[in-house]
Every structure is written in C-alpha cells, then in structure tokens.
Design a protein around this nucleic acid. Structure first.
Lengths: 145, 145
DNA sequence: ACTAAGATTCAAGTCAACTTGAAGGTCAAG
DNA sequence: CTTGACCTTCAAGTTGACTTGAATCTTAGT
C-alpha cells in the first residue's frame, strides 16, 4: 500500500502522514525500489490510534512519548495520561460554564436595557463582569477536520 | 498616562497594547511632543472591554468589527454575537463531554485488562472508540494569562 | 512519445495573539 | 556626562498541526 491509499483509508492527507512520520509518531515505512513509501495494514491501526488520541484532545508531542518506543508503553503512565486529560477537561468545562453564565447575564442586561430604551455604559458593565471571571484558562484544541 | 502606566493598570504588556492598536482594536492615541503615546482614562475602559470579550472567548477579529467604529455598535448585532458564542460554547461542551465519556471508558477498560493481566489490542480498541466519536470539533481558545 | 496521476524532498506559509530583538530617541537622577 | 528606565518602529520569532509550493521522478494509459 502506498501513501495515497493509506491516506484514503484513514481519511488523512498524505502530507499529514509524512508529517506524522517526520514527527516520530509513525515508524519509517519500507520503501519500494523507486523510493515510494510502502505500508502494511499495521500502519492503518497505528494511524487509527493516533486519530483516537487526537480526538481525545492529546497534543501530538504527548503522543510521541507513548508512540515512540515500539509497543508496550507502561500502563501506569498511560492511565496517568488519561487522568491528566480528564482533569484538563474538567477545567475547560468549568471555564466554559463561567463564560456561559457571564454571556447570559450580559445578554439579559443588554436586552432589558434595550427594551427600556436605556443606554448602557459598556465600560462599567465590563468592569462588573470582569470581577466575576475568575480563572482565565488556556486553550483546548479539539481536533480539526 | 504613557503606555507603561496603562499597561500596569490593565495588566497587559505594552507590546500587547501596541498590538491591539495596530490591529484596530484601540484608537490611535495622542502623542506627546517626543512621540510617546499618551492615553486618557478612557483607554482603560476600552481595554477592559477588550479583556472581557477575550475572556468570553471572542477572537480578536470578531472584536474588531464591534470596536472599529467609534461607539454605539448596533444592539441587534451585538446580541447576535453573544448568541453565536453561546452556541459555540454548547458545541464545545458537547464535544468535551464526548471526550470525557470515551476517556472514562478507555480508563476502565485498561484498568480491568491490567488487573486481569490481559493484553489489550490497542488498535481494535481504538477502532471501537473512534466509532463512538461523532463530531470532531475545532479549537476553543479560552483566554490566556 | 506524451500526459496525468501520484510519488519524493525540502523549505516556507498558515492562523492567533502576542513577544522578542535590533537599533535608536528621551529624559530624570547622580 | 553617563547610566538606566522607558519610549519609538519594524521585522521576525513563537506554538501546533499541518498545508502549500517548487522542483523532480515513476509509472500506467492512450
């Protein structure tokens, strides 16, 4: 199987596969005499695992640790990684709930002021709402197409 | 007030303030004869609004639209933006819940297999779990420091 | 023989939101 | 008069996960 076929079977772009190989996520494949990469069925499985991990929100460099050595990654570490990610998710959800709450407050406040024909002081409102926002929180990065 | 003071009062870096100005989020300030930027108290309010919007998860180019013209942005559009962001948040939360569910399944499966001294086929497991994952979803980007 | 599809490598571009660096101007204090 | 803090501009670097482009090669089909 050449790279194009593997790409089709996994839904990835050939460039992405080469990129994964280059980043050490995928072992270097055999080459046919003309220099083309030749993959076994195994490669599909490997990529599926990468895709799953990506879907679960693990950045590629975290995967590298687990996929670098050939097979059998220590189970304790694996569980630890899962737990770490689970914690991250909780934090993100908390942050999102806070955002949602603030947005709803803002929505209501503005709607009411609008209905009453009043003019709102955006600055004061912002100061007020900023006081509620506690933990700013960082990026999520949840899979691209 | 020069840029350093404004930076301190808002908790932003001077470079960030210059960047915001450059991106059209902040009006160009007066300059003192030596060329230094000179800000009024107003600028603090403006930056607080930007910070709030950032905390709420709006990317800067969305803000640009609302902050470009001087004052009074159409209220309907504003409400629409809030609603759009609220929808995004719901989608992100859904995606995170899916991830969490899968991670928990994975955790349990691995723990059990480990306890039973079994060897798990990562590939098959991945295929199985990937089937559950529906919508891949894009990034979140929830404010930095 | 020619074309088109698909392969190769390597370098550089993309997006976001800034930061960092280089090279220099201004100003109060010692 | 020199040091140091603070300011200026402009260009380039950062991170993540790839994509895109350029230049070249292989192979199957007409």
């Amino acid at each position: 199987m050449r790279i194009g076929e593997l790409a089709e079977k996994t839904g990835l772009a050939p460039s992405a596969i080469r990129f994964y190989e280059q980043s050490g996520l995928l072992p270097e494949p055999e080459r046919s005499p003309n220099g083309y990469r030749v993959y076994s069925e195994q490669a599909i499985g490997r990529l599926r695992m990468v895709q799953l991990a990506q879907n679960l929100g693990f950045p590629l460099d975290r995967l590298r640790e687990a996929f670098a050595g050939d097979e059998v990654y220590p189970k304790e570490d694996l569980l630890h990684k899962l737990d770490t990610r689970l914690d991250e998710i909780e934090q993100l959800m908390t942050a999102l709930r806070t955002q949602r709450k603030t947005l709803r407050t803002l929505r209501t406040t503005l709607s009411e002021a609008w209905a009453a024909g009043k003019c709102v002081d955006g600055v004061e409102l912002a100061n007020q709402l900023l006081a509620q926002q506690h933990e700013p929180v960082r990026r999520s990065k949840t899979r691209h197409e």
